[in-house]
Design a protein around this nucleic acid. Sequence first.
DNA 1: TATTGTTATACTCTATAACTATA
DNA 2: TATAGTTATAGAGTATAACAATA
Lengths: 156, 156
Amino acid sequence: MDAPVRHLDQVKLGQLGHSVGFLLRLAQLRAFDDFFSENGPQGLKPGEFSVLWVIARNPGIRQSVLGQRLMIKRAHMTKLIRTMEDAGFVSRRIPDRDRRAVELTLTPAGEHQVEKAAVLFFDYEQSTGAPLDDREQAVLVALLKKYVGLQGEAQG
Amino acid sequence: MDAPVRHLDQVKLGQLGHSVGFLLRLAQLRAFDDFFSENGPQGLKPGEFSVLWVIARNPGIRQSVLGQRLMIKRAHMTKLIRTMEDAGFVSRRIPDRDRRAVELTLTPAGEHQVEKAAVLFFDYEQSTGAPLDDREQAVLVALLKKYVGLQGEAQG
DNA sequence: TATTGTTATACTCTATAACTATA
DNA sequence: TATAGTTATAGAGTATAACAATA
């Protein structure tokens, strides 16, 4: 009989410790949480930053396409975009050739906001990758891209 | 001037497409979401499965240690454990030597539940890793473990 | 009929702080 | 004083379904 586990290093994870899904969850918590809580750039939340960033690089992108790429559901996209519109960062346009759709662009204020936040975001990315050296980090990125099927996409 | 982006493969992600944090988020969605929504084993949610699994391998583990290892906050642990207790899967015990603490064990029903769920969970893990071959998957797991600081822990 | 986006509802997970009881 | 756990509240993110407008 083992004594009751009272210390972190004694905890046995078994197969779970080799589970991609489980490790991804822990890794995501490590990567994002502390950053976006306190040091959060300009009060932008993760989803908001990624949305602004992608609109900046794809002016006129359709709301549905943006949501698909970032894996954000339509209902949530609506709320996100409304918030960004209310903040004065995004403008919406209904194209004549398909009046169901919405095309998104950044306002000048939105562009300014993203570029400022991006500096903080990518700087943090660098520092949070600390436990891995550059080569390991590159391998991790490559494997994750393959895992999520993000390989042949356009680079900007 | 580019034409408005209307297709997924045209979307330019720029630096974001090389961001560990961003890729981790996409990867986690890919790994977990669809599985635990529909095919979810026995109606167990991800947090619930991981909690039961770790208790099974560490009988008598303290609630606080469990929460630290799984990166679940104390307030949320309380609710999670209550739910599992109400479901008849977990039993709580206040040890005499520190009457503030709670030691957790599985009931026979809980043990049965985890083992059944584990088969489905790890089988799915296998299939969801499809885009990566065995060697790539092993490298990914090793890098993620290093990234989250999960290296020298006890194996079970 | 199918698609784009909106609205409304509910649930999971998280964040925070105040609280208890024990140490 | 500090720690283990609880309670309560708020918020983000997501899932779901019903809906309007357009294709």
